[in-house]
Design a protein around this nucleic acid. Sequence first.
DNA 1: CGGTATCCACAAGGATACTG
DNA 2: CAGTATCCTTGTGGATACCG
Lengths: 123, 123
Amino acid sequence: MTQPLSVDMFEELCPSDLIPLRFADKWAALILRCLDGGPRRFSELRVPLSRVTAKVLTSSLRALERDGMVSRTAHQPGTVPHVEYALTPLGRSVLDLYATVGAWAAEHWDELLEAREAYDASQ
Amino acid sequence: MTQPLSVDMFEELCPSDLIPLRFADKWAALILRCLDGGPRRFSELRVPLSRVTAKVLTSSLRALERDGMVSRTAHQPGTVPHVEYALTPLGRSVLDLYATVGAWAAEHWDELLEAREAYDASQ
DNA sequence: CGGTATCCACAAGGATACTG
DNA sequence: CAGTATCCTTGTGGATACCG
């Protein structure tokens, strides 16, 4: 049974529809996971994310903040900066979504790797 | 309640863990959706995906094939090429996952857009 | 029909150094 | 401490032309 195709797929779904989920952001999922246990300071995030430079971490955090997934709070009791990042309800929600994606990956990982090996072997 | 962070997040989860899901591929989701109604020829896919060039469509299809989400079958009855792409069971499974992601997006879309407008207005 | 070959533009990511 | 400023590399995606 073959169903007809839309004339233009872009009328229904743009690629940008997925971009706000930040799946294309290399570090977004990792950052959100780091915030799962509670609010973190910038320097605290840099430890587990040691392979992400400050510049890149900043820009990812800004993007997550813009999308309402992370909140940024600057406390300034004295002269020393103190910034805390925390998950918003939306951020927590997208973390659940990542968990679903992760469960899918765990279940189908072997299947995918086998396909890849088979393909590479045939080329 | 604040929980401790891992020393190195990369021990648990690499960014590459998500890449095989092809979420970073700009057209993968759209291509899989085009195959949902049945097998399609290359030129059939080009119609709804008119904004994707042949080169890009080919490379996306190759990547999907390598990951076992799409099968490529070349029928050659005469001298005229006839290639069909179809969803594999794994591809169908990942389509279900996209549906879950899409449902999340539909539910939280407004929330995300509001956050974005608020952020942009404050900058 | 089903692609390749070539060249190009742009954005993301990264290395390094510096600052309020 | 929490970033910026600069510069550079890479890769994806795209435009155009051509081929078995």
